[in-house]
């Protein structure tokens, strides 16, 4: 700018105008001197920005003035250069709470939240009931106990990524054994519905998850069952308690700490479910099985929108923290008690 302006200066004839140009030149010199050794994007304070912007307005005014009065070789270019100078201000990319504002009205996020909740509630409930049953079977002393314990842990011993792949073969519409079986017993209308219809896909992922993690639940509860002293059951027998009474009055209350740990960690895991759904359905069909972590993954790495992806993660974190607090408050009263 300095260069062009000095060149144009010779065309400016009136003394008054010359002075103006000189003053502007001085100012520009001063400012460029200050930022001479800085490179790349600079962070500037608010007052700095004000002075720089003022300089911009002044130079535009002067140049416009000159252009109106004289015909200078660089008149039009100068204006462009000055404009560019203003454009070199990059406003901060700090957007405050706008990401959360967007999240509030994001229908896709609402759907993902609903899917995640549905998945978590149904699968954890089924896993808990089946896992408790399995734990009670494993707890009985009989011959072949080790064999039953080990075989029933098979599903959980298979890596999730591999198990999900396995299920995608079993659910396959043409050659899947499970999908064909479901069709035969009338659970689904068409064997390809399992992965290709919204409700079918959700059901499939839940079944696969229940199959996979029931043993995990069972072994956590089994360890808790082992800690209940036999004596209590004997005393209950003498008092004439029935099977069901013993279960609700002794087993469940005594199992509370183990139940807390099992439910807590299972819920947290189910809420963050990722690889199973990623492999089985990738959130489809039409977002019917898209969970929060999958949505955040797609936003973060698929659209490289790290900001909004993080917003989703934080929302997830808040949900999970609330769930954890509720569990600990409801079930955890005796976690800290000593026997």
């Amino acid at each position: 700018m300095k260069l062009f302006l000095t060149e144009d200066r010779s065309h400016v004839t009136a003394l008054q105008d010359r002075e103006k140009v000189d003053r502007l030149l001085q100012d520009v010199q001063a400012v460029s001197g200050r930022f001479k050794n800085e490179k790349g994007v600079q962070k500037i304070s608010r007052t700095d920005k004000a002075t720089l912007l003022q300089l911009y307005t002044r130079s535009t005014a002067v140049i416009n003035d000159l252009n109106a009065k004289y015909h200078t070789p660089n008149g039009k270019n100068l204006l462009q250069i000055v404009k560019d100078y203003k454009k070199s201000f990059i406003s901060s990319n700090f957007i405050g709470l706008k990401g959360y504002e967007r999240a509030l009205t994001d229908a896709r996020l609402g759907l993902a939240l609903w899917n995640t909740t549905l998945f978590t509630v149904v699968s954890v409930f089924l896993e808990f009931v089946l896992g408790l049953g399995l734990a009670m079977i494993m707890n009985k002393a009989f011959r072949g106990q080790g064999l039953i314990r080990t075989t029933s842990l098979i599903p959980w011993a298979i890596p999730t990524a591999v198990a999900a792949l396995m299920w995608s073969y079993l659910y396959d519409g043409n050659s899947g054994a499970v999908s064909n079986f479901f069709q035969a017993i009338g659970l689904v209308h068409n064997s390809s519905d399992l992965l290709l219809s919204g409700s079918g896909a959700m059901m499939s992922t839940i079944i696969a998850d229940v199959w996979k993690t029931t043993p995990y639940m069972a072994i956590l509860l089994l360890a808790g069952l082992q800690n209940i002293p036999e004596g209590i059951y004997e005393a209950a027998d003498i008092d004439g308690a029935g099977r069901i009474q013993k279960f609700f009055r002794i087993t469940l209350p005594m199992l509370k700490p183990a139940i807390l740990v099992a439910l807590l960690f299972r819920t947290l895991d189910a809420f963050r479910v990722f690889d199973l759904i990623y492999v089985l359905t990738n959130g489809g069909p039409g977002g019917a099985t898209e969970t929060l972590s999958l949505y955040s993954y797609k936003t973060t790495f698929g659209q490289t929108n790290f900001g909004y992806g993080s917003v989703i993660v934080i929302i997830m974190f808040v949900c999970v923290a609330v769930i954890a607090t509720i569990y600990v408050k409801v079930l955890g009263t005796n976690l800290m008690d000593k026997s």
Binding site: N139, G146, R149, T150, A157, I219, Q226, N227, P229, E230
Partner: peptide, 20 residues
């Protein structure tokens, strides 16, 4: 193939999960 080693480990460890 990869499930077998884990099952062996489980088989060994589960013996210690005993009550009383």
């Amino acid at each position: 193939i990869v499930t077998i080693p884990t099952l062996i480990i489980v088989l060994l460890f589960q013996k210690k999960i005993v009550s009383g």
